[in-house]
Design a protein around this nucleic acid. Structure first.
Lengths: 242, 242
DNA sequence: GCCGCTCGATTTGTCCGACAAACCAGCAAA
DNA sequence: TTTGCTGGTTTGTCGGACAAATCGAGCGGC
């Protein structure tokens, strides 16, 4: 009597989201296609509209379905803007430490910089120049450059054209660079060092010099660790409450 | 008249999920806590139960809430098992290429190996030895070692103790290693090379030799690229339909 | 006194139906 | 042709209902 174990059927709302997901994955529904109306779906699946709605809420959360207007839902391919915040939240809840983030950044950021240098377009370069100018203005005004620092690293990742890297790096950047707010007040010269590094990285990218870009980026990320330690902070401290 | 722009209020179900999410993020609800019943929540928020349910479906999808039994929902911290499949799906839908995955793996895997070698526990080592044995048996039996290869790399990532790295690497592994099925039939000797590399990596980890582990892992990942090219496959080909 | 069991209360999953507000398309008027 | 109105569609939300699963408490047996 071991053969017949209890069947584990998913709830109907889960079956709905799995089925629509399947249709998207196998290409029957393509990104950009409008989803049928809730009533229509309820009719086809033979379930009540509220059940369909629960399934749609799941797809919406997964980024497989996006709303164009307040009403119209269209199929979409989830991108890093959908996934990165969830990953950041997960790491925050797990009390991720500075060390973990830094170790990961220490390999991903130099790769980003090198790839971007090798493949850069003028558009990316223009965005980086613009970011440099705004960062400098912010520092001169005595304000925190954290948001612009995050943007700088995101721009470089985007420039790499490597979507796996973009996706993997984004949550780490979102959590690691805010750590700079803990450093800046104690190390006044750090803003200047940040600016120097950013400029050198952009110049290397402009010159399409991948090695130089990689080296400066590695130096820049190492500097973050040095600053952290110089401030007497513990690398194994969680960055959750910065 | 520029001051008064249209107010964008989220739908009630979104407000519910955002509010519960806030309570989790700020620590009012801690992982492990049971969620109040749907009726209870509906009463407190002043909305209908079906509205609460839509909000809960979103939290469930995000991994912030997990079901212990079929009924009881408890607060949870999302982990890589929640997020990695979504990331893989996103990359698949975006037609991620072999090259993108390989470039990212080329920096993450050697780091994983080095960290694991430096910090390994006997438990991790035992799991790796077990994986080696099963991989060898599978290869001898002429079967595909892809699942075990993926497990091998996941075990090493887990051994690093770096949760940022675990999270970032997992979706890449899930997509990259299945590419091996395209290589194996054309390169019969590849299974032996895989086995040799895995053994060397485990030996380096056993000896807590971080550099040796890093080097062998880098060689192993490079080998994957070599195999791909030797088979006449285009690095810029999507791995979506393997 | 402890264990296990039954029975009722609670909770989830699903359904039915309703209605207001937003949205869209088509038609009439300028 | 453009503008504006109108009616039908779709979403968001609500009220309520019920079966099945689960839980808890009290009760009886050992």
């Amino acid at each position: 009597m071991v053969a017949f174990t209890k069947l584990e059927l998913p709830p109907a709302y889960r079956a709905v989201s799995l089925e629509i997901e399947r249709l998207i994955l196998d290409g029957t529904l393509k990104p950009g296609d409008a989803l049928p109306s809730e009533t229509d779906l309820a009719g086809r699946f033979g379930v009540h509209r509220s059940t369909v709605r629960e399934g749609i809420r799941q797809l919406e959360t997964e980024g497989l379905v996006r709303r164009e207007t307040r009403k119209r839902l269209v199929v979409a391919a989830p991108d890093s803007a959908d996934l990165a915040p969830r990953a950041s939240r997960a790491l925050t809840l797990q009390q991720i430490t500075f060390r973990e983030l830094w170790e990961a950044a220490m390999v991903m950021e130099p790769l980003s910089a090198a790839l971007t240098a090798a493949r850069r377009t003028d558009a990316v370069l223009a965005e980086l120049d613009d970011n440099l100018a705004r960062t400098e203005a912010t520092i001169v005004a005595g304000q925190s450059p954290v948001a612009l620092d995050m943007e700088f690293h995101s721009l470089i990742a985007a420039g790499s054209g490597n979507r796996a890297l973009i996706l993997a790096r984004e949550p780490i950047g979102q959590l690691l660079y805010p750590a700079y707010v803990a450093i800046r007040p104690h190390l006044p010269q750090s803003a200047g060092r940040l600016m120097t590094a950013h400029r050198a990285i952009v110049e290397a990218i402009r010159a399409r010099d991948a090695d130089e870009a990689r080296i400066w980026m590695a130096r820049h990320i190492e500097d973050l660790n040095r600053g952290w330690v110089l401030c007497g902070l513990d690398p194994d401290m969680s960055v959750a409450n910065l």
